[in-house]
């Protein structure tokens, strides 16, 4: 069943702030197999010119899962358990590194849904901002919904 194209242009905003903890950054850093001290050691981070430890540049790509994966589980969006969705393409723009202690807001907009052969592609733009509204980073994900395109005449 095809995805609901009425979602194109809709934006969802997280109801609560995401507070970045030093321990979460440590867990994420270990999970990606990293050991760089700017992620783990406050003194080392300060020597590199940061006020405290920072997040790896791919940390922001995981925030969407914590925030509930909108719109994947909206019944009206039409995403079925089967077929699966896979990530095809991901673009990240960093306005500044994410630091421990940051309080971040998260908003997702469905930018596009279109057929690519038997599959559908949907594009989501995630805006991560600080409490004063300043941009922190932007993540644009293109997901492939396998085999869900409407049959062609």
């Amino acid at each position: 069943m095809p995805l609901n194209r009425e979602f194109i242009g809709r934006t969802w905003r997280a109801a609560e702030v995401y507070e970045v903890s030093r321990e979460k950054l440590r867990d994420f850093t270990v999970a990606i197999g990293e050991m760089h001290p700017v992620y783990l050691d406050e003194e080392a981070a300060r020597k590199h010119g940061y006020r405290t430890v920072i997040a790896p540049p791919s940390f922001c790509t995981a925030l969407w899962f914590r925030m509930g994966n909108w719109p994947m589980f909206e019944p009206e969006f039409g995403k079925q358990k089967d077929p699966v969705c896979v990530l095809g393409d991901q673009r990240v723009t960093h306005h500044r590194p994410i630091h421990a202690g940051d309080r971040l807001w998260f908003a997702t907009t469905v930018r596009d849904i279109r057929d690519i052969g038997r599959h559908e592609l949907f594009e989501m733009e995630h805006q991560v901002t600080s409490e004063d509204g300043a941009p922190v980073c932007t993540v644009v994900d293109q997901m492939i919904s396998r085999g869900s395109a409407a049959p062609k005449e």
């Binding site: 790896p56 790509t61 990530l87 095809g88 673009r91």
Partner: peptide, 30 residues
């Protein structure tokens, strides 16, 4: 996860520059 490989790829950048904060944008294709 695709972004796990993306994370490992980006580690080559700080192995070179000494600082992960030098990555200002990334575009991964899986």
């Amino acid at each position: 996860h695709g972004p796990l490989t993306e994370a490992k790829a980006l580690s080559l950048i700080h192995e070179w520059t000494g600082d992960p904060g030098t990555v200002v944008a990334q575009h991964a294709r899986f």
